Simulated assay, not measured.
Amino acid sequence: MKIHKIIICTLFLFSLQTAMAQDDLLGQLDTKPVKKEAVTATFKALQIANLQSTKLPAKGEFYLLISHRFGDLTEGLQNFFGLDNANTKIGGIYGIADWLSVGLSRHTFQKNYETALKYRLANQLEGGFPVTIVGYNTFDVNTELSKDDYPSLQFSNRLAYSAQLLISRKMSESLSLELAPIFTHKNLYNNVSENANLMLLGFGGRYKLSKRLSLNLEYDTRLNAKEDNPYQNPITLGLDIETGGHIFQLVFSNSQAMNDVTVFNNSTGNGSKGIFFGFNMYRVF
């Protein structure tokens, strides 16, 4: 009789334990995995200053862009601190999808038309993937070239390209950093001082000063430039001012041109000469 009681008690305890284990398993199955949110506001503007940031327009957004780079500040009153001559860029950027945008701009420099494609490959996630990765490609057409200067000029000679991989990380609420391997190609170039293909490594950062102000800095080092070339590594200091639907950027750069291929290849300022003040203004619709 005692044996029967022991067997019945054992079976009861085993059944109870099994039921509790099943409830625990069902509880685990019912628990949904926590979705990791994408990090936002790494950069407020589409550009750090000259260099692109990893920010893209949202789907359906249209950005109107107007940029100026005035003349050389170091010439003083001779050109009224650069105000006597300026390069202008006007263009638009449209968000086809949250991860994809296209852009078109026209530059007074070389009467250049620049098209751009920007696409997100990965997002920095809260407690997950550590960086945001964005691809950026430009395609330039120099319409200033004339057959009077180049009798054998062909359309392909007008073309130049860039390919950039933008890798950013929001380090804190105040600090964001970016690393950018860059490749540029020119179909027409000065064989003495330039390479058809140029490799660069770009660095950029944003430090938030207040809710609507941030200080930006970028520097691009040319990895295979010719030793006797007259050009400098691009460097730019900027200040972001956010005013509702506008992002206004004040810029000091050693490049007066604003199309990417020329910025990366042909920046002329060396610190004592060739400092160009200007601005980028974005209006979103």
Results as ranks from 00 to 15, higher is better:
residue 278 G to D: 06
residue 87 N to A: 14
residue 54 T to N: 06
residue 196 A to V: 01
residue 265 N to D: 12
residue 119 Y to V: 03
residue 1 M to K: 12
residue 169 R to L: 06
residue 83 L to H: 05
residue 225 A to C: 06
residue 123 N to R: 08
residue 234 P to N: 05
residue 57 P to G: 10
residue 178 E to M: 15
residue 35 K to Q: 10
residue 26 L to E: 09
residue 211 K to D: 15
residue 154 Q to Y: 00
residue 204 G to N: 04
residue 22 Q to R: 08
residue 42 T to N: 04
residue 34 V to G: 00
residue 172 S to G: 03
residue 80 F to I: 05
residue 269 G to Q: 10
residue 279 F to A: 09
residue 125 L to H: 03
residue 92 G to R: 03
residue 163 A to R: 01
residue 198 L to G: 02
residue 47 Q to T: 10
residue 217 L to D: 08
residue 274 G to W: 03
residue 262 T to K: 06
residue 230 P to M: 05
residue 283 R to I: 13
residue 31 T to Q: 13
residue 218 E to K: 12
residue 54 T to C: 09
residue 209 L to C: 10
residue 154 Q to S: 02
residue 203 F to N: 04
residue 226 K to C: 14
residue 218 E to Y: 10
residue 214 S to M: 04
residue 182 I to G: 00
residue 138 T to W: 01
residue 64 L to C: 08
residue 1 M to I: 11
residue 201 L to Y: 01
residue 193 S to M: 05
residue 189 Y to F: 15
residue 283 R to K: 08
residue 33 P to V: 14
residue 3 I to S: 07
residue 217 L to S: 13
residue 154 Q to T: 09
residue 179 L to A: 12
residue 47 Q to Y: 11
residue 39 V to Q: 02
residue 212 R to I: 11
residue 14 F to N: 08
residue 254 N to D: 11
residue 173 E to G: 10
residue 211 K to E: 15
residue 111 K to Q: 15
residue 143 T to C: 09
residue 169 R to S: 15
residue 213 L to D: 15
residue 105 S to N: 10
residue 74 T to K: 14
residue 185 H to Y: 14
residue 49 A to D: 04
residue 4 H to C: 13
residue 111 K to M: 10
residue 57 P to K: 04
residue 87 N to C: 11
residue 13 L to S: 15
residue 248 F to W: 12
residue 109 F to T: 00
residue 235 I to A: 13
residue 134 V to K: 00
residue 37 E to G: 00
residue 54 T to G: 13
residue 242 E to C: 13
residue 203 F to M: 08
residue 26 L to R: 07
residue 106 R to I: 07
residue 24 D to G: 02
residue 59 K to E: 14
residue 47 Q to W: 06
residue 170 K to M: 06
residue 197 N to F: 01
residue 2 K to P: 11
residue 200 L to F: 02
residue 156 S to M: 13
residue 121 L to S: 09
residue 197 N to I: 01
residue 243 T to P: 03
residue 173 E to Y: 08
residue 154 Q to C: 00
residue 48 I to T: 02
residue 91 G to T: 03
residue 124 Q to G: 00
residue 153 L to T: 08
residue 96 I to M: 08
residue 186 K to T: 09
residue 139 F to K: 09
residue 252 F to E: 11
residue 84 D to N: 12
residue 2 K to R: 09
residue 74 T to M: 13
residue 202 G to M: 04
residue 134 V to W: 01
residue 213 L to M: 13
residue 104 L to G: 12
residue 279 F to R: 04
residue 101 S to Q: 05
residue 3 I to E: 15
residue 85 N to A: 15
residue 247 I to M: 08
residue 143 T to Q: 05
residue 252 F to I: 14
residue 57 P to M: 07
residue 164 Q to P: 04
residue 124 Q to P: 01
residue 270 N to H: 04
residue 81 F to L: 13
residue 191 N to V: 14
residue 51 L to W: 04
residue 239 L to A: 12
residue 55 K to D: 02
residue 270 N to Q: 10
residue 234 P to Y: 03
residue 76 G to E: 06
residue 37 E to I: 01
residue 269 G to T: 06
residue 202 G to A: 15
residue 174 S to C: 09
residue 93 I to F: 05
residue 25 L to Y: 15
residue 14 F to R: 01
residue 39 V to S: 01
residue 258 M to S: 15
residue 100 L to C: 12
residue 41 A to I: 05
residue 21 A to P: 05
residue 280 N to D: 11
residue 74 T to W: 05
residue 198 L to N: 03
residue 223 L to K: 03
residue 65 L to H: 06
residue 81 F to G: 06
residue 263 V to T: 07
residue 164 Q to Y: 03
residue 235 I to F: 12
